[in-house]
């Protein structure tokens, strides 16, 4: 059974992949972080019930997913998003922090290769919490162009990260 301080350390170390999973439900990264906070507090309160770290992580993903759905139902009256079955499938192979650490290091390099305009697009979408309609208005583009640009950017960054990780592991 992990000690309470180990639970805290584990959840904090896995913050990014956990919040990314919660964001699969919320579609809002800030709200996903709020869910993460609540999961941390609940986990500490029931520390004695976790038998292993894996048990804790499974519980955290499930509790956070349920909490996120509850918040959306309370706010919007309904939840429209990925089904429980799909979220469970995704959770089974969700990246852990070890993989995310390597990805972040690679992203650090890859993001320097994109244009200032594309960087601003990502900043508006992922930092300023703008939806794509707002991003299109701010950048003077059509909304379809924004979706295509974001999709292309994710593909480019994903390919770049994969290449860097393969190069690193080969060397």
């Amino acid at each position: 059974m992990p000690a309470p301080e180990d639970i805290t350390a584990t959840l904090l170390a896995e913050r990014l992949p956990l919040t990314a999973f919660f964001a699969s439900v919320t579609r809002d990264f800030h709200l996903a972080e709020d869910v993460f906070q609540e999961v941390c507090v609940k986990a500490v309160a029931r520390a004695e019930s976790f038998e292993t770290t894996a048990h804790l992580m499974n519980w955290a993903r499930l509790a956070g997913k349920n909490r996120a759905i509850d918040i959306l139902r309370a706010r919007d009256g309904r939840y429209v998003g990925l089904s429980d079955e799909m979220l469970a499938l995704l959770a089974a192979d969700w990246p852990d922090q070890t993989k995310v650490d390597a990805m972040q290091e690679a992203l650090d390099q890859c993001i320097t290769q994109i244009t200032p305009n594309n960087r601003e697009l990502l900043r508006l979408r992922y930092f300023e919490r703008r939806n794509c309609t707002d991003v299109a208005a701010i950048m003077g583009r059509k909304i379809e162009t924004v979706y295509q640009a974001l999709a292309r950017l994710h593909k480019t960054l994903g390919d770049c990260i994969r290449t860097r990780l393969q190069t690193d592991s080969a060397s």
């Binding site: 990014l16 992949p17 919040t19 990314a20 999973f21 964001a23 699969s24 990264f29 996903a32 799909m86 499938l89 995704l90 192979d93 969700w94 990246p95 995310v100 990805m103 972040q104 992203l107 650090d108 993001i111 990502l122 900043r123 992922y126 930092f127 994710h154 960054l157 994903g158 990260i161």
Partner: peptide, 25 residues
Amino acid sequence: MRDDPAKRQLFADTQVRSMALHDRF
């Protein structure tokens, strides 16, 4: 995604990358 693990991996990676971008900015 249901019948294609590669697509599920693509989605998970996209979500994690998006969260990492949020964090980075």
